[in-house]
Amino acid sequence: MYDMNRVENAVGQDEIKISARNVQVWYGETHAIKDVDVDILDKTVTAFIGPSGCGKSTFLRCINRMNDSIPSARIEGEIRLDGEDIYDRSIDPVQLRARVGMVFQKPNPFPKSIYDNVSYGPRIHGLARNRAELDEIVERSLRDAALWNEVKDRLQEPGTGLSGGQQQRLCIARAIATSPEMLLMDEPCSALDPIATGQVEELIDHLRQDFSVVIVTHSMQQAARVSQKTAFFHLGSLVEYGETDEIFTKPQDPRTESYISGRIG
């Protein structure tokens, strides 16, 4: 599906995009994330895998501070984006989220037109000076999301009228329209059929050229197909992190081995 050699070279060259140290998350009394250290590389697809409730989604939501909206959530430790502490007081979560885009499990297009969906981010952040620039951003984002040819004649129709796979690609287009540096994907294919999943996976592989992509997935096959690096979470801890093919072929930790061979999950 992709050129293994090129990937390995790329991983070797890439710089660190996110560097997390001693990250702890509590929901009320529940210790959801325990002491996670991880470096996520630029222009790489990193997969977070693990049984449900292991904290992989929680950790993902720490990277763009989506946990801020949950009153009971408490986060300790540090997460740096390009060396900047994103939980520093000087960082505005609003701007951070424009730099770290996110795509959700279920496609969630706004009940607006396709055009308005994609232009929503650029509009609120003031990324376009005029209508022509906005048009250009919308077209570029839809092209990058491999949706342009399917929707270019009906940009004013509601986004909710698209098929499930198209909706998810619309959400990806919406997320990349603010030109983020990273894209976080929380099980983006779990609500899609196999054909739509294939299209989105192909798209993810392509997005790696421009972004650092983190994808949370339940499917180990998917992780193996699209990612170069894989992190295995279990009970809130990061158990093992490394090159994807190494994790899947010769895991170091017995828990990883059990999960991959289907004994826990």
């Binding site: 003031g126 092209r143 491999a146 030109s179 192909e202």
Partner: peptide, 25 residues
Amino acid sequence: MTEQTTGSPTRNHDWNSEQFRKNLA
């Protein structure tokens, strides 16, 4: 991936620029 014809346009915004800071305020 045949649609990738526009190449890679400039994507980098300087989020600390005056313009963005004013907008944020």
